[in-house]
Design a protein around this nucleic acid. Structure first.
Lengths: 219, 219
DNA sequence: CACGCTATTGGATGTGCGACCAATAATCAA
DNA sequence: TTGATTATTGGTCGCACATCCAATAGCGTG
């Protein structure tokens, strides 16, 4: 009982330890940024020695890429849950937007900003970013396609519409690290407006469905 | 003549040396990135000793912020020249877009991406970014206001329209470090489309004016 | 010409990083 | 119980960075 640091070493299965490491790294990626994922930082997050991280990830860049992938996938699953939907396309799209306009989405914006910039120097991460972009595109365009087939959305090219929405979302998210305070409602709702226009929905129809969750900004 | 390194030390006026340093740093910012602005890197760019940089910029972060400001201002002056205009608002806006869709604009996109991310950790840079954003907003909204007063553009709020255009531009620029290859014309021209829509211009009217400069992508 | 100012040099200090490796001990099979 | 496997430790190495400082030498002033 003399020392708070653990004297006995705990030995886990490689799989368990590995996911533990990646999870810790993903958490750091979201809260502090991808460049804070360092061998030492992750190590004392898990109360192990730095060398152990290097044992599972001999090249740190691989851990960074993996952490981004896990974090981004988790966020996407929150925005547009995969699997059998319980709601209709309109409700699911409204959910998506209500989550993306909230301030809690700033963390996600920061992560993407972070990853996109860091991709300039880390090819492994660049690959992961490209894969995640495809994942997000596909998930959103899938939702849109569902809606068009159900007759509630109208667009010739669901993928193109999805990309347009994501571009606007990226543009809004670019300011996650700076001002973002003095934003007019028109600008703040640009993504929703884009969706309503490109999907041929009535103006404000999506917006009115978005009041359900706790974190929204009606302004 | 035995040594290629300079044996004699050159002594310049503080103003001259200072601008020299900032210019070198700005060039590095555009080509390699803001985190490559290091005391040593700038020093051997100018063939001086690292200590000299520290003499003019005791805190390196200040040099980084200054370099970004200079680089961004220079780019803006290229996109929307200040001073007495020789062309009309429509031509100037067309020039703006023809320069922003070209691949040569990727460098600028990268710079903004870089600065916006780095602002997360460097408050001094964050201030500079905020000021530059205001500068860009004002310059573009000024141009739009000119056009509305001349009766060629139609919008109730030139500033809001300017911000909308810039948001789309930021969204498109987010991918400057990754793919950006498989982009449909619709997506590639989103910023122009936004302008035409928000300024109540005829569809394609701006686009057709954009063929002049060498670097454009009609797709 | 001599002197003072200071731009510029050369070097030191301390930090954090990724990568590497031999020694140790936990776990499981024989 | 014994032994092999390997997860985990503890430490080292070299590198790049920002910051600080005393010594040096250009250049203008007297």
């Amino acid at each position: 009982m003399a020392s708070s640091v653990q004297s006995k070493r705990v030995r886990k299965t490689p799989e368990e330890r590995r996911t533990e490491i990646v999870s810790a790294a993903a958490a750091i990626a979201l809260t502090e940024g991808l460049e804070c994922i360092t061998v030492r930082r992750v190590a004392d997050e898990l109360a192990v020695r730095p060398g152990l991280i290097g044992h599972y990830f001999p090249v740190t860049e691989d851990l960074v890429a993996e952490a981004f992938g896990v974090a981004a996938t988790a966020e996407l699953d929150e925005l547009i849950p995969a699997g059998r939907p319980t709601d209709g396309p309109v409700e699911r799209l409204a959910r998506f937007f209500s989550l993306t306009v909230g301030e809690s989405y700033d963390g996600v914006s920061r992560l993407w900003l972070n990853a996109r910039h860091l991709s300039r120097y880390r090819p492994t991460l660049a690959d992961r970013v490209a894969r995640q972009e495809a994942l997000w595109r596909n998930r959103l365009s899938g939702l849109i396609r569902e809606g068009t087939e159900a007759g509630v959305f109208h667009t010739d090219d669901p993928m193109e519409t999805a990309v347009q929405i994501l571009v606007v979302l990226d543009g809004l998210g670019a300011h996650a690290n700076t001002d973002r305070g003095d934003r007019s409602p028109t600008v703040a709702n640009m993504a929703v407006t884009t969706a309503e226009r490109e999907l041929d929905l009535q103006k404000g129809s999506l917006l009115t469905l978005m009041s359900a969750p706790g974190t929204h900004r009606a302004h």
